[in-house]
Amino acid sequence: MTKSCNSDLRSLLFSWIIIRQLPNLQRITVGKFRNRSDAEGHLQILRRMIPHARFEVVFDLPVRQYPGKNT
């Protein structure tokens, strides 16, 4: 497998992400997880450690790139 294929496979396997919401509609991806339960458990820890920050668990559906398209 090529590095690109490994990256695509990894993004499919780790589809649950935790984001930290920032001002001006910006966000930072904090972690990627294989299942929602793992993400929720990590979210609880983050909320205890950084209570003033806003975190969310999100399902990150990968965007497919088709050959010949620049979108």
Rank of each mutant, 00 (worst) to 15 (best):
M49A: 04
G68D: 07
V63K: 06
I17W: 02
I45V: 09
M1E: 12
R27V: 06
R34I: 09
K69S: 13
P23E: 15
L61H: 07
K3S: 11
P67D: 08
H52M: 10
P51K: 13
P23A: 15
N70M: 09
D60F: 05
E56D: 11
Y66F: 13
C5V: 11
F59N: 08
R20C: 07
F33R: 02
V30R: 05
R54Q: 09
P67M: 11
L22Y: 13
K69A: 13
S11V: 00
Q65K: 12
T2H: 03
R54W: 14
E56R: 12
V63N: 04
P62N: 02
I28T: 03
G41N: 11
T71E: 15
D38G: 09
H42T: 01
L25V: 09
I50G: 01
L46K: 01
P23N: 08
R36T: 00
G68A: 09
R47H: 04
L22M: 10
S15T: 06
R47G: 00
I45N: 01
R20P: 00
I17D: 02
P62C: 09
P62F: 05
V30L: 08
A53L: 11
N35V: 12
S37I: 14
T29C: 14
E40C: 11
I45T: 04
T71N: 08
R47C: 01
I19E: 14
Q65I: 09
P23Y: 06
P23S: 12
